[in-house]
Design a protein around this nucleic acid. Structure first.
Length: 292
DNA sequence: CGCCAGGTTAGAG
DNA sequence: CTCTAACATGGC
């Protein structure tokens, strides 16, 4: 083992693996036998590593050579951020244990954390891909995007990919993505994002540390980034615990099911329910998703 | 075949 | 701020 990361008490590696195996079409990591393998680019070099759990630690193994101490640290930081290990869930669980909708879910899925996307560009593009289509098809679109435009490393006969860079996607025209079954709208939105990042108009650094409302307003300046997409990125990339993807269809269905409603709840109804989760909207959403 | 899916935009009220 | 139509394509 090369690196160790101490785990908080409220963390489930099994649920993390389960989430990461949500689709067989996922191409940005591999999971097998409670081992997660992922490729990352650190300071321009490709680093392939695997993660396992041993007691209260995550162990990281570097597969394609031994990186510098600095690079190893960068990978450990990435993993911490990816699995949201820094968030103290105790206040959330204290609140949820008294809530009729969350009580059972938080008990059943104790230790489940938001698996995020530290890369803001990846997070926003992934959200755009998921707009208004079922998740499995979104994975299909992502697979095509990544396999065609992302950097690849072959290790022991297996392919590992990096998410495409804004610079690479910038070289495309809207119509170039149509053969991959992107709608005209989706391909335009993806290229808008690529240009914004490649030109430096938008970057994670520019928004980090801003109050949620300001960060959201700046994200929504971009065509294709509405309230849902902005909040999705605020939740998965910036880690605001109070980000709420209000328009999310899966969230609507989960609430409908839990409350045994005839129809999906209206947005005002959802706002009212979430008023009692103030400060923990992102985690409330995560657990409600588990109900659908 | 129909309904719906981890929505967004532009336009109107 | 809220409501609506148009967009567009696969999964089931």
């Amino acid at each position: 083992m090369d690196m160790k990361i101490r785990l908080p008490a409220e963390f489930s590696f099994d649920l993390t693996c389960e989430f990461l195996q949500r689709s067989p079409r996922e191409v940005l990591h591999r999971v097998g036998g409670k081992v997660i393998t992922k490729l990352l680019s650190v300071d321009g070099s490709l680093v392939l590593f695997s993660i396992t759990q041993r007691n209260n630690f995550l162990h990281i193994y570097f597969l394609n050579g031994k990186p510098s101490q600095q690079t190893q640290k960068a990978v450990a930081d990435y993993v911490s951020e990816w699995f949201d290990l820094a968030t103290d869930l105790k206040p959330f669980y204290a609140m949820a244990s008294k809530d009729p909708l969350l009580k059972t879910l938080t008990k059943k899925y104790f230790g489940y954390r938001i698996v995020g996307q530290p890369d803001l560009f990846e997070s926003l593009v992934w959200a755009v891909l998921g707009q208004q289509i079922n998740v499995q098809f979104a994975y299909t679109l992502k697979k095509r995007l990544v396999e065609n435009f992302g950097e690849r490393l072959v290790w022991q006969g297996v392919d590992y990919f990096l998410f495409p860079t804004p610079g690479r996607l910038c070289m495309l025209h809207d119509s170039d993505l149509l053969p991959f079954q992107f709608s005209r709208q989706k391909s335009r939105y993806v290229l808008t994002l690529a240009h914004a990042f490649a030109s430096g108009v938008l970057s994670k650094e520019k928004l980090i540390g801003l109050p949620l409302d300001e960060a959201r307003a700046q994200l929504m300046q971009l065509k294709g980034v509405g309230n849902w997409t902005a909040n999705y990125a605020l939740m998965k990339s910036f880690r605001y615990p109070q980000a709420l993807p209000l328009e999310d269809a899966a969230l609507h269905n989960a609430i409908k099911k839990l409350l045994a409603l005839r129809q999906k709840p209206t947005l005002p109804q959802i706002k009212k329910i979430f008023a009692r989760y103030r400060g923990w909207e992102a985690y409330a959403t995560l657990y409600l998703w588990k109900a659908s």
